[in-house]
Amino acid sequence: MQIWRSVLLVGTAALIGATAPERGYGEGDFTNVAKFDAHVHANVNDPRFLEVARRDGFQLLSINVDYPDFPPVPEQATIAEAMRKADPRLQFATTFSMQGFGTPGWTERTIRTIDAAVARGAVAVKVWKNIGMVEKDAQGKRVFIDDPRFDGVIAHLERRKIPLIVHQGEPKNCWLPLDQMTTENDRAYFSAHPEYYMYLHPEEPSYEALMAARDRFAARHPKLAFDGAHMASLEWSVDELARFLDRHPNTVVDLAARMSNLQAQSVGDRARVRNFFIRYQDRILYGTDLTDSPLDPAARAQNPPATNDFAREADRVWRNDWRYLATPLSQRVDAIKADAEGLDLPRGVIDKIYSKNARRFFARMT
């Protein structure tokens, strides 16, 4: 009888051990875990940013982008390359100009620009929302991301296994009246940037049209390493984002500047959001969109907002995001005027989202 009791206890313990959920991290683990912020903009050669990243355990990907509120692209590139030399924990992504798009020689010039940047250390290429929302060709026709005139450049990226970071469209809030938007940060940004606030421009392409162009592009280039920036502009629904990831197995997405949109969803259904992260743990990159730009008293609202103490702001954002993703603790989220309970993701999931996925994705080049 004693022998059988011992066998039963051992078997029960083994069963419990096999089914026990993986233990998560706590707030005290923050600085000890390797992390990678896969979406920042270092527009100032600021050693304080590198220092806070070192202290908090972060690698960084600084993304150059052809954005009118940023310094000119060559200046962004010079800053990124200098910071990369100062500390290899910062990597950078390049971009290209749409000037002359569709004219003879544009494809060849763009490929040379990309290859030169890669030779200087760029690990990816970024295309911005100006494609689809701003740019027109020589005939005055709007240019969308699935335009076949991009094919030569995309084929080159595929051959060299250079990842493409794709920012298409805007949050769905951009097409809603201000009083129907789901987050305060979107409300502030689009109030300050009426040129990008599509609710005021019904003559412009719809949200659905931009998402459809993005989907056609992803389907046409299944060998392309595709990073859908800002949750692929599907931040309003983890179910819609799951469908996108299922349709396009070559894609990953980053979380940059969309954490409050996730928190708005998890306040209503925490289990749904948590299950999404666990199911797609190999396809999600942590990112913030933290932007260190020269301060301008006349500058318009940014998302995330500009600050005169950027290093402190970076530390605050990173710690708040860690609290939400890695722990079960609640925090007040002003952007949604509510308390958001942490997702308490398992350690293995956190390790992938915060570091392993980005390291793998941005190390594909040959």
Rank of each mutant, 00 (worst) to 15 (best):
T103P: 14
A256H: 01
I336E: 01
W236P: 02
F310P: 11
P305S: 06
P297A: 01
G348Y: 07
V40I: 14
E341A: 11
H167M: 05
I114P: 14
D151I: 04
V238D: 07
A299W: 13
G100H: 03
G24N: 10
H39T: 00
D66Q: 14
D269N: 09
A80W: 04
L234N: 06
W106K: 14
D146W: 06
K136C: 15
A340F: 04
A311C: 07
L90C: 08
W236G: 10
Y197E: 05
K136E: 11
A188D: 10
Q139H: 15
L241R: 04
R159H: 15
R323H: 08
F150Y: 07
A38Q: 10
V65C: 12
P68D: 15
I79A: 12
R312C: 05
V143R: 00
V153E: 10
L285I: 09
D254H: 03
D334K: 01
K141S: 15
L245Y: 05
Y324R: 10
H193N: 13
R149E: 13
S206P: 10
D215T: 14
G17S: 08
A14P: 01
E135P: 14
W128M: 09
A13D: 10
A218P: 14
A299C: 09
P47R: 08
D29H: 08
V317K: 09
L90V: 08
L50R: 06
N32S: 12
N275M: 11
P294V: 07
E81Y: 07
P249L: 08
L90N: 00
L325D: 06
L50K: 10
V52E: 10
L164R: 01
A229E: 03
L178R: 13
P21N: 11
V52N: 07
N173K: 03
L200C: 09
P304S: 01
K337S: 12
V65E: 04
N185P: 14
V267D: 12
G28T: 07
W318L: 05
V252M: 01
V166L: 04
